[in-house]
């Protein structure tokens, strides 16, 4: 028997799939000697460029641009690293114990150790394993990423009701998606939402990691990345 036809995706999820950013490339500087400074310079530059993309992406989340500019800023300042980490994690789902920071920057444990990225590597891998176990799909990833942004628990929100409405609409989109596509597991929405504490914990470790690097002052960082780190 043919499998039952899947219901159409909710409007929000279809929209989030369309506005999902293109692949990003790290383009490590070939003139720099390999090692700690080069690896971190590459990652900081990549993060800075990806932040620009994330800010553009956020504006396409239905309802986000209707928030006040101050609330848009507060959500992004709280959640940017969770979004960066979730992007890395989703790109890494097809790999074995490797992190796909970018299409051209895939790091295994050995490379991570040699380039001083082991702490970050070890911090992010449990999240990859968690989503692998759930076999997270792209529709779920794009929705969860928007939920992470709306649910960033910033203490500086002006219009709490408006942010709540945004959370509710994205939560509903995830529930509808699971209702239509994963009828065999009625707890799947909950299982996905229950990954968010580990995402926050991982992002906090990553922020700490890059903040220490900023304090050491040996790695050049672009202005937007610095600005977001300082907002933390």
């Amino acid at each position: 028997l043919p499998p039952p036809a899947k219901k159409p995706l909710t409007k929000i999820v279809s929209h989030l799939l369309v506005v999902e950013p293109e692949k990003i490339y790290a383009m490590p500087d070939p003139t720099m000697p390999d090692g700690y400074i080069k690896a971190l310079t590459t990652l900081c530059d990549l993060a800075d460029r990806e932040l620009v993309v994330i800010i553009g992406w956020a504006k396409h989340i239905p309802g986000f641009s209707s928030l006040s500019l101050a609330d848009q800023m507060s959500l992004l300042q709280s959640a940017w690293m969770e979004i960066l980490v979730l992007n890395i994690v989703f790109r890494s789902l097809a790999c074995e114990e490797e992190l796909v920071y970018a299409e051209d920057y895939v790091v295994d444990e050995e490379h991570a150790r040699l380039s001083g990225l082991l702490d970050l590597h070890v911090a992010i891998l449990p999240l990859v394993r968690r989503y692998k176990k759930l076999s997270m799909e792209k529709e779920e990833f794009v929705t969860l990423k928007a939920i992470a942004l709306s649910n960033s628990d910033s203490t500086h929100i002006e219009n709490v009701e408006a942010v709540q409405r945004l959370q509710d609409s994205l939560h509903e989109a995830l529930q509808d998606l699971e209702g239509a596509h994963n009828t065999e597991d009625p707890r799947r929405t909950g299982k996905l939402l229950m990954t968010l504490p580990l995402l926050r914990q991982t992002a906090a470790k990553a922020v700490q990691h890059f903040y220490s690097i900023k304090v050491q002052g040996k790695v050049p960082m672009h202005k937007l990345f610095l600005e977001m780190l300082e907002a933390k």
């Binding site: 504006k59 209707s66 409405r165």
Partner: peptide
């Protein structure tokens, strides 16, 4: 806001808002 001027500027660069 003065401290976060790049984020502010990037958010202000307009694309039409997507309504719920």
């Amino acid at each position: 806001k003065e401290k976060h001027k790049i984020l502010h500027r990037l958010l202000q660069n307009s694309t039409s808002p997507v309504e719920l």
